[in-house]
Design a binder for these strands. Structure first.
Lengths: 174, 174
DNA sequence: TGTCAGTGGTTGAACTGTCAACCTTGATGA
DNA sequence: TCATCAAGGTTGACAGTTCAACCACTGACA
């Protein structure tokens, strides 16, 4: 390590802004969603992913990759959601180790009810505050960063980083 | 509520990109910091805030506002950091209810040792991936959102929202 | 057929964050 | 001086996350 590089004032403004944005926006959207639908952002994302999948079901590992969460976290998360009958687990006939996460009717209904309000929040607190150019730059900039960064997985990043195709994270509709 | 408004494809790209960015970047920076310095991002932020304050001390409430965290969270956080001798609490002579959080010598040393590596991570994973225009837009866009959003505080947003001056979040140096 | 490494997934303990209740002290006003 | 209310802060119970085992099963190969 040579001379430490500090930040220019523009970089500082961007970085501090980013940190503030994340903290405050996440807080606001989570609260809105929780109050209006009784769902956490994590719940919501799982429901969206499953709703988009063929037959509304996905193997645990696929779901974890899609949602960019660890298998452990997904497993705990699914256990909680299963207790609320939003999803259910099913064994995989062709692979005795495998488990499917399956969206229940009720889970679908809850998601469908939650989606309009959630999207409205995203508009109200984020998108409507930005110019079209800023929206577009946000997309570009996120992609530019994500291209160089492996998704979070276990405690240590495995040497052969797999699953690089899906760079985005779902979150929008039923 | 009238017709639900969905997202245009540009909006969707921005929103999914943002979600992916946050998840992956936070994960990466947290890990780097933890591995190199044994600090969490939350630890780091507290240390930075205190290091910038006069006499390296701040009242709990001021610190909580500056760091945009709840008082409860800060209290727990400080208890943990106190056990590691990074900070210490001191009573406030002029107000019997008050408590100061004070940066210790050791806390300062740990921060000073951690800062270059952390800043390097921010460069490597975020700033160096972006054009100067994108950096600038990130700053603008964050500010545009934050201006309309109160900082997270208690369970419910109090009607008179206080402490609106500090919109950014510190995170950069010792 | 038996072994054995790797994959898919779960579990429990430790840690972090949230919420609501609580305690103490200060400020206000009768 | 006393009652009352607000402010500053802490606490304990609980929800969610991470980490490191762990178990069950598959696939390959001897």
């Amino acid at each position: 390590m040579s001379e430490p590089r500090w930040l220019t004032s523009e970089q500082m403004r961007a970085w501090r802004g980013y940190l503030g944005l994340v903290r405050v926006l996440d807080d606001r959207l989570s609260r809105d969603l929780q109050e209006r639908s009784g769902l956490s952002m994590a719940d919501y994302e799982i429901l969206v992913r499953l709703s988009e999948a063929p037959e509304r079901r996905l193997r645990m590992t696929e779901l974890a990759q899609a949602a960019m969460v660890s298998k452990s976290r997904l497993s705990h998360q699914l256990t909680r959601m299963e207790l609320r009958a939003l999803v259910r687990r099913e064994g995989c006939p062709s692979d005795g180790r495998g488990t499917f996460a399956v969206l229940t009717q009720q889970g679908y209904a809850v998601l469908a009810a939650a989606a309009p309000g959630h999207v409205a929040s995203v508009h109200e607190h984020l998108l409507d505050r930005l110019t079209p150019e800023q929206v577009s730059t946000l997309g570009d900039l996120s992609e530019a960063v994500l291209v160089h960064l492996p998704p979070p997985s276990g405690p240590r990043c495995p040497p052969g980083r797999a699953g690089r195709e899906a760079v985005a994270v779902a979150d929008e509709r039923a």
